[in-house]
Nucleic acid binder design. Structure first.
Lengths: 236, 236
DNA sequence: GTCAAAATATGATTAATGTCATGATTTTAA
DNA sequence: TTAAAATCATGACATTAATCATATTTTGAC
């Protein structure tokens, strides 16, 4: 876990405005700002590991992160993604359990850290933060359940199409408005859809042949997202 | 949704003691007691439906409930179970979204109902209830993610073995200490494990042949739970 | 720039599971 | 009590996707 000098500003200067901390008073913002730690993470580095003791929560100042768990056979399953402004590791706030997933940085990122205690202190005096936290948990639960039903009932092709849509809704497109702004390996895409690397390669080729996507190495271009939506939703 | 005269006591007299309401003051308990509604549900009846407007949350006074969602192909997926003392529908508290799942009663049950407003009013003045609610959400999220990885990575046999264990940990055994106290159809078990009815029938027969379980119609006997644990956890 | 390692690609084969069909058994309701 | 409906059971077959093998291409470190 490398630490280098970063240019992360005080929380009051941070422009991640629509996140969970937006309801804090200036004093509370100042308090977390004084107590936070900031780190730089290089692509591929882990922020925390599944099973490790939780020491607090993380806020992504700028970056992209995947959360994954290992199955009993050692295969990875991607649970969720997080991006600039999102927080990580907040689930361990409510129990003394270790982290339930491993957070891995998908591209060079700046991430702040706040201790459990500071966060819960603020929650105690700011019911809006509690409320926001519950909404966040509730939202994550909803998507986990949706992901479950997708993996349980859809074909690989539908799941891959859905995985690409998830990457789009989470990380968006590049400036050209059609190229996914995140580049993953085929194996990482497989770990989202719950399939193998080979099947993912073949399925992406099929989607390409059907003009649902275009492939330029790891770059994935989605000219028309509704084509993917159709593929992911229907049994043909 | 039938309503009949029930013998549900006031909340202060209710002996579901280890649930989310155990931190309430006597006044708060009195307040929810006065505002609750109580209903009797016959086996098979729905408490609420996925997609319907949420009007509040439910507390199972006595009974067994399954929560399920419909996939896009119309196939049901069981998300979670709930039993005496558990609450249902609390997720819709944090957003104005409709219920995300259908709650169906697995055996005749008595279930109370409390409006969103009363619950959130109490949360505002009782931070312990907020805390408990967050713990509950967090626990549900954890098991949803575990369920996801199981369905994504395990074989049908392992998933069925795991489903039986879930039924055991949720609902327990009959007085004999080895017969599951819940009786589901093969099709309902299939909907937990994310497989088909036929495959479930065959797999249960295999587990039976391997002496992991005994079958007496819908009655499932698990003489030694650790045998199932072993089957559900390992790739052979 | 070169080389090794990682990632991509593709084919052949196999295993797991879904689908369809049919009959037996159990449950439910009149 | 009995008939209808639902559930359970089993076989045959089809299909999907995993596995194994082997090139080829890309990437990253020196």
């Amino acid at each position: 876990m490398s630490k280098t000098a970063t240019k992360i500003p005080a929380c009051s200067e941070c422009d991640n405005k629509d996140n969970i901390f937006c309801t804090l008073t200036p004093e509370q913002t100042e308090m977390i700002s004084e107590n936070k730690g900031s780190n730089f993470y290089k692509k591929g580095q882990a922020v925390f590991y599944e099973g490790n003791q939780s020491h607090g929560l993380f806020c992504i100042h700028k970056g992209k992160v995947k959360l994954s768990k290992l199955g009993e056979n050692g295969k990875e399953q991607v649970i969720r993604f997080a991006k600039t402004g999102n927080i990580l590791g907040y689930r361990s706030l409510f129990s003394n359990e270790p982290y339930q997933a491993t957070a891995t940085v998908l591209e060079d990122s700046y991430i702040c850290h706040l201790s459990k205690e500071k966060y819960t202190d603020i929650m105690k005096e700011n019911s809006k933060l509690s409320w926001k936290t519950m909404q966040l948990l509730s939202k994550d639960l909803k998507s986990a359940e949706q992901h479950l039903i997708n993996i349980a009932q859809k074909t690989v092709k539908e799941r891959i199409a859905e995985a690409l849509q998830l990457l789009h809704t989470t990380f968006g497109f590049l400036e050209d408005g059609k190229t996914l702004s995140i580049m993953l390996t085929r194996s990482e895409i497989a770990d989202i859809a719950g399939t193998t690397t080979e099947t993912t390669i073949r399925t992406l080729a099929i989607l390409c042949k059907e003009n649902a996507i275009e492939l330029e190495g790891k770059r994935i271009i989605i000219p028309n997202i509704s084509v993917l939506t159709k593929i992911s939703g229907l049994y043909d």
